[in-house]
């Protein structure tokens, strides 16, 4: 199982993953699950009614608009990076937070490297499955490397023009 790092109150911690990802062709295990979009659409209702916590993994070419009405019932949205350089999930994450006000976990999965940490945090990710073996400490250092930011995003950081006014 990959390491899961959560960012809680500005501090990165290595945590046990309470969710199991289930591919479309796998049997359903007990417990809290992360499903593909199509499986969620067919089986999510039943699983939620069993009292389980449920998350959905969106591939980079799937858009958060597809989840618009389901989001309040989801605990996790996992967004995939098929490769480091594929930036579509940044838009999905930001829309989840800014447009849909999603309060659950937004998790980065796939080819996730610590070099992306700062960007990921800023668009609203709060959980990460690093593919480069980063420890929580390394993730934290990378995420907080830049002391200032230039533009508004989905986080609460004040851009430099507000810092200048202060």
């Amino acid at each position: 199982m990959p390491t899961l790092i959560e960012m809680i109150d500005g501090s990165a911690r290595s945590v046990d993953d309470g969710f199991v990802f289930v591919a479309d062709d796998q049997d359903l295990p007990e417990g809290d699950l992360i499903l593909t979009l199509s499986r969620f659409q067919t089986e999510g209702e039943v699983l939620l009614s069993q009292g389980r916590r449920v998350g959905v993994k969106l591939l980079a070419d799937q858009e958060v608009e597809a989840l618009a009405y389901d989001l309040p019932r989801l605990s996790v949205v996992a967004l995939d990076f098929p490769k480091f350089g594929d930036g579509r999930s940044y838009s999905n994450a930001r829309l989840l937070r800014e447009r849909y006000g999603f309060k659950g976990q937004v998790r980065a999965v796939g080819d996730v490297l610590r070099e992306q940490a700062g960007f990921l945090l800023r668009v609203g990710f709060d959980a990460f499955e690093p593919a480069d073996g980063s420890s929580a400490n390394e993730w934290q250092a990378a995420a907080l490397r830049y002391r200032h930011v230039f533009q508004r995003a989905a986080d609460a950081r004040a851009p430099v023009y507000l810092e200048r006014e202060a």
Binding site: G87, Y90, S91, F150
Partner: peptide
């Protein structure tokens, strides 16, 4: 320049 520098959403465009 300021807006685009380290833009978190638009640093991995197509």
């Amino acid at each position: 320049r300021q807006w685009s520098t380290f833009h978190p959403e638009f640093s991995f465009l197509p």
